[in-house]
Write a protein that binds this DNA or RNA. Structure first.
Length: 469
RNA sequence: GCUCCCUUCGUCUAGCGGUUAGGACGCGGCCCUCUCAAGGCUGAAACACGAGUUCAAUUCUCGUAGGGAGCGCCA
């Protein structure tokens, strides 16, 4: 049997990190077993579904690289099929029309709750033989009222449900549209889904769906219910801390591989290993060793992982994204060094591409941000002579390389009788405007001779030493 | 309220009857060092509680407490 899994989001909002994790595990399961991964858009609720949400889901999945083999299928285009299956169930006596109104249902629900009962449909239309005129009925599924349904969950193990606890759920609304439960069952059957891997908010729905599948005479798929991801405060994911559009992570400068790596370690592990390439994930992933408990989202660890990927990536592959972040910051990439060299120099000093671009901003502008306190501290009269000498020597340096620059700086420091560091930091402040940058020779090499000489000359005047190059 | 699920350092986790309870992020210290990082070494930090079962429970069972989910003509 070939494994076939699916990811079935409803397009009523953006795709967030929790959805991506669900998609990832489902995708990994399929890929690990050499199976197929199906994408299905569950848009039976026409009121709340939007094309914009569909686009965002598709773009998000494409960005993180969770590719599907089939689909996207849209439930909204399969209404005829659902109607056909509904008729089948109705004529087989496995479903029936219910004429109870919403108001009646609601009133009974309130009464049940006040009596301390599980609010559920009382089945009063189960044996009705005549239609109620003027009322458009819904179609309800006739749930077995005794017995036990066992879910052998891939993640939770054996979970039992008393059928008597379950009521007759609606398959088709009075307006003729199918409900979520019905669409899922018909689609999973039609699409040949063998393994349903989804969030554990569906665990309680599983016995009902199994009943429908059995009534349809279809094979019951295997189920795996994944624990949910909580916000960093332990509360349900909300916009404050993670339930943001997955594409926002791209805007923040995260890499897809880092996100998937972070997500796969939420609820799953392989010994002490922390970093997994996609190939390793696929090879090692085992749903049987997925945790049953919910986990919290930790942005710090995501940042750490992101840097791990930043550090080993081919700089060229990061160049385009880096350029986008520069432009976002209002900088002109043409006015500075080639991206790869900057990435190379900065990736151990940044956790995201966005941070990296922000740190490198001084390379791409003629008016870098100036740290006034650093200027006062380092650009003192005493350093003026050294800066003047360095400026002269750098202007005469034959080849503008870090090695050559380093030699000139060492020579100036020796000549002036000061340590390398005593010269390095004032130079750093002079050319970057701040106190932090890659090794000073690398920094100067990146900036280029023209900008370096100009900034050193400007800095010289700030020292108040009267020295000139 | 009813049903179902969950519970090891602050966080992610390893553990699958006998361990000095391991690793990672974060935090502290030391080393390296022109700054910041990165890196190396190192420190503090956990089995929710109570009963069983057992020679022996973090590990098995049952409770308790605390979290979570479901109970819609939402998905």
């Amino acid at each position: 049997m070939t494994v076939k899994t699916r990811f079935a989001p409803s397009p009523t909002g953006f795709l967030h990190i929790g959805g991506v994790r669900t998609a990832l595990f489902s995708w990994l399961y399929a890929r690990h077993h050499g199976g197929q991964f199906v994408l299905r858009i569950e848009d039976t609720d026409r009121e709340r579904s939007t094309q914009e949400a569909v686009d965002v889901i598709l773009e998000g999945l494409a960005w993180v690289g969770l590719d599907h083999d089939e689909g996207p299928y849209f439930q909204s285009r399969r209404f005829d099929r659902y109607a056909e299956v509904a008729d089948q169930l109705l004529s087989a006596g496995k479903a029936y029309h219910c004429y109870c109104t919403r108001d009646d249902l609601e009133a009974r629900r309130v009464a049940q709750i006040s009596r301390g009962e599980n609010p559920r449909y009382d089945g009063r239309c189960r044996h009705r033989t005549n239609p109620v005129s003027g009322v458009q009925p819904v179609l309800r599924f006739r749930t077995p009222d005794s017995g036990v349904t066992v879910v052998e969950d891939l993640v939770r193990g054996r979970v039992e449900f008393q059928n008597a606890e379950l009521d007759d759920l609606i398959l088709v609304r009075s307006d003729g549209t199918p409900t979520f439960h019905f669409g899922v069952v018909v689609d999973d059957g039609d699409m040949g889904i063998t393994h349903v891997i989804r969030g554990d908010d569906h665990l309680n729905n599983t016995p009902r769906q199994m009943h429908m599948i059995q009534a349809l005479g279809l094979p019951v798929p295997a189920y795996g219910h994944l624990p949910m991801i909580l916000g960093s405060d332990g509360a349900k994911l909300s916009k404050r801390h993670g339930a943001v559009n997955i594409l926002e992570y791209r805007a923040q400068g995260f890499l897809p591989d880092a996100i998937l790596n972070y997500l796969v370690r939420l609820g799953w592990s392989h010994g002490d290993q922390e970093v997994f390439s996609r190939a390793e994930m696929i090879q090692l992933f085992d749903i049987g060793s997925v945790n049953a408990s919910a986990s919290r989202f930790d942005g710090e660890k995501l940042r750490w992982l992101n840097q791990q990927y930043l550090k080993v990536a081919e700089p060229e592959t990061l160049a385009d994204d880096f350029l986008r972040h520069l432009q976002r910051a209002g900088l002109d990439p043409a006015h500075g060094p080639a991206p790869a060299a900057v990435i190379e120099a900065y990736r151990e000093r940044a956790t995201t591409l966005r941070e990296l671009a922000d740190s490198a901003a001084y390379l791409y502008t003629d008016s870098p941000a100036i740290d006034e306190a650093a200027v006062r501290k380092h650009l003192t009269p005493a350093i003026g002579g050294s800066l003047a000498l360095l400026t002269t020597r750098l202007s005469e340096l034959a080849a503008w390389t870090r090695g050559g620059i380093h030699n000139e700086m060492a020579a100036v420091a020796a000549d002036r009788g000061i340590g390398f560091g005593k010269l390095g930091q004032p130079v750093r402040v002079a050319v970057t405007g701040g106190t932090v940058s890659p090794p000073i020779d690398v920094t100067l090499e990146l900036l280029g001779r023209e900008k370096v000489l100009r900034r050193l000359t400007q800095a010289l005047s700030l020292t108040g030493s009267g020295a000139v190059a």
